[in-house]
Design a protein around this nucleic acid. Structure first.
Lengths: 124, 124
DNA sequence: ATAATATTGCAAGGCTGTCGCATTAATATA
DNA sequence: TATATTAATGCGACAGCCTTGCAATATTAT
């Protein structure tokens, strides 16, 4: 299935690029200049994830956040860095700190989701 | 507000103790012998969290899982250990591995939520 | 026993995310 | 340029998770 260029895709990518942080579907919809259906935004976001352009983080509110991370299109497919969710400004950003853990024998890790919650530099 | 002893509270604690792992409201409700309202289970679980008896983990499905962890009533209030969610048996368990990270200056971390997803020892 | 109030059940509602289906629009082909 | 192919979208609907208000119940203290 070959991807097509659409206004929706560019608009979503544009918002995420300018934001420089992870955003929820809702936040993206509010920031986007054109009117795009909710389901469509989700589909666009998930396609971007499939294509390795975005990565998805689950925050402590149980919601999905999507980020365009500069360190993501590297060798490892997994996004093994920490994320920080500020309870004040609701921002979710990627941290430079890499996740490292030891796992008991026999376990196979396929995905990593690490979110620190608190107050960010700007809001402190 | 002083807590009261109720059959619901004991039943919930009992299930979680026997399970020895983190469980969702739904899973708890299914395991519980008596019939308890969904909202009530949530209220009981959240009260236990407030009282420091349980801790809550958000998994990659966006759902809340509650665990009675043996290492939790220690000095630190935060539950800074990794969790492992098996995609096969759907189990979410606490790992012995402690979470360690470096955080940029000015950030205040109040909570940690780290979940590894994959296949556990039993299902591999 | 009685009062005070924490806990519960019920119903309802909000929010998130997904899906099927008809329609539209982007790309390839003639 | 016109046409065919099919990816992408909008709409509506739905399921699931979690919370909340309110009246009824049950636990604890007096």
């Amino acid at each position: 299935m070959k991807r097509r260029q659409t206004p929706t895709k560019s608009a979503v990518l544009d918002v995420l690029t300018k934001a420089g942080k992870a955003m929820s579907q809702n936040a993206i919809e509010q920031e986007i200049p054109i009117d795009i259906n909710r389901a469509t935004i989700y589909r666009v976001l998930n396609r971007f994830c499939d294509d390795g352009i975005l990565h998805k983080v689950i925050a402590e509110d149980g919601k999905q956040y999507f980020a365009l991370c500069d360190r993501c299109d590297d060798t490892h497919k997994q996004h093994q860095h920490y994320h920080f969710k500020c309870t004040v400004c609701e921002t979710l950003e990627c941290l430079p700190s890499e996740v490292s853990f030891s796992i008991p024998q026999g376990y196979v890790v396929e995905n990593v989701n690490c979110v620190l919650t608190g107050v960010c530099k700007n809001c402190a």
